[in-house]
Design a protein around this nucleic acid. Structure first.
Length: 415
RNA sequence: GUGGGUGUAGCCUAGUGGUUAAGGCGCCAGGUUGUGGCCCUGGAGAUCGAGGGUUCAAAUCCCUCCACUCACCCCA
């Protein structure tokens, strides 16, 4: 027997209302903030991600689905959306449009990881990007949008954590301070941190290993060593957020797993904590476009995990609207009636009534049982008598009332 | 990649060495010449995750593998 590959899942009909709900809320909020939808390829030139996200990151190093196609091109299933949006921005000359260009996307992303609760190898992303503007008001707007999105969904239990990790100008200086702080402790630090110390010192702050906590806590904070521009930018972002009454927590140890982030980084975390269960995250990327070969343009965005949102909705038992089902079931008895039933079903469908047509030659009892199990509110019954008289029986399944009416009258009644 | 837990029908579960693997939900059918839900009766549906070993005898004990799951790393 074939099974869905590890870390993938079927989204069955009973789960669909959640997906539809979240997607609709996403589209709604994007419209409110002036974002337009873009759909991107699910695979791209692998280089786009290695260059964009960064060679040394876990996502590129050990989680990316890379493959060679028959033409010998190295492609990768997209592990995230931002790099693709930037690629599209460049490819379609969007720098000629009014800036910032605001785009959002909904679709799957792929990471080769061991699956667990809320983590899948194929998972749904909803993300948005605003490219071409460095105004801190835009940072605040994106965070506000993320906040409103989660509030609008009906999720109550989450917090926003915020940090600034500086820019090309001030970060190198900060990193050397950080390494200076760590260098006397390299022997006491966990194995991962020994590697981080060499390869990606910023990530030292991210460590959850107990033995590293005191050292990370005592480490110099990036926000204390920002250049004047970055410091002003960060304080402006926070000022805007406060005036918008968006609650947030400063977390000087928040760093994110992509190399392209500059200045503002933030995460939406469920109240229960759990470091692996971020509902969403994002930040500013002021050099990414340039690194991808474009004329320099700053950008900021955020992305959320659809499955994690849906798990949250289910955990908090947030009601979601159910998807509409068929309004009518057509049951029939005998061949002649069967033909009349098929004609009727077709007529009704052409008049936009959703109809389930019975099949086979089963007893009326069986057909009604099926209608009942499918929760169809009304049933049309056609037998020999009805064929002769040009009528149908219309049965209301909730009241158990039924009446015999001329076929022509049925259409009117169903309006 | 590392560690823990779990694998018996579509789903949930009983069975811990001894006939044909049991029950509930669901599904199908009958109980009504053309009437659903409740009830009654019946039916279909399981190579007991896979392979090997121990034994007269294995769903049950042992080994290996696989899958699922939770957690770590990291991220959505």
């Amino acid at each position: 027997m074939y099974r869905a590959p590890r870390g993938t899942q079927d989204i069955l009909p009973q789960e669909q209302p959640y997906w539809r709900y979240v997607e609709e809320k996403a589209a709604e909020i994007c419209c409110l903030y002036g974002y337009e939808r873009i759909d991107l390829p699910m695979f791209e030139d692998a280089g786009l991600f290695t260059r964009g996200v960064g060679e040394g990151t876990d996502i590129i190093e050990k989680e990316m689905y890379v493959f060679e196609d028959r033409g010998g091109n190295s492609l990768a299933l997209r592990p995230e959306g931002t790099a693709s949006v930037c690629r599209a921005y460049l490819e379609h000359g969007m720098h000629n449009r009014p800036q910032p260009v605001k785009l959002y996307y909904i679709g799957p992303a792929f990471r080769y990881e061991r699956p667990q609760a809320g983590r899948y190898r194929q998972h749904g992303h909803f993300g948005c990007e605003a490219i071409g503007d460095a105004d801190p008001a835009l940072d605040a707007e994106v965070i506000d949008m993320a906040w409103q999105f989660f509030v609008g969904l009906g999720l109550g239990l989450f917090t926003i954590v915020l940090n600034s990790i500086g820019c090309k100008k001030c970060r190198p200086e900060y990193l050397s301070l950080l390494k200076e702080h760590y260098s006397p402790h390299v022997d006491e630090v966990c194995a991962d941190c020994k590697v981080r110390f060499q390869k990606n010192p910023l990530r030292l702050l991210d460590c959850k290993s107990p033995q590293c906590q005191p050292i990370a806590d005592a480490a110099p904070k990036s926000i204390d060593h920002l250049c004047a521009d970055c410091a002003e930018h960060y304080s402006d972002v926070k000022r805007y957020l406060s005036s918008l009454e968006i609650p947030f927590t400063d977390n000087p140890r928040l760093v994110r797993g992509f190399d392209y982030y500059t200045r503002t980084v933030f995460e939406v975390q469920p109240a229960g904590g759990g470091s692996q269960s971020a509902l969403g995250g994002g930040g500013r990327y002021d050099v990414l476009i340039e690194e991808l070969g474009g004329k320099p343009a700053p950008g900021i965005g955020f992305a959320t995990g659809m499955e994690r949102i849906i798990l949250g909705l289910q955990k908090e038992t947030v009601p979601v609207p159910s998807t509409p089902g068929p309004q009518l079931f057509i049951a029939y008895l005998g061949e002649e009636a069967g033909e009349a039933a098929i004609k009727l079903a077709t007529t009704l469908r052409r008049n936009s009534t959703a109809v389930i047509m019975s099949t086979g030659s089963r007893s009326l009892k069986a057909q009604l049982r099926q209608a009942n199990n499918l929760s169809v509110p009304r049933v049309v019954i056609i037998g020999e008598d009805e064929v002769k008289t040009g009528t149908v029986v219309l049965r209301d399944m909730t009241t158990s009332q039924q009446e015999s009416i001329p076929v022509g009258k049925l259409l009117e009644l169903l309006q």
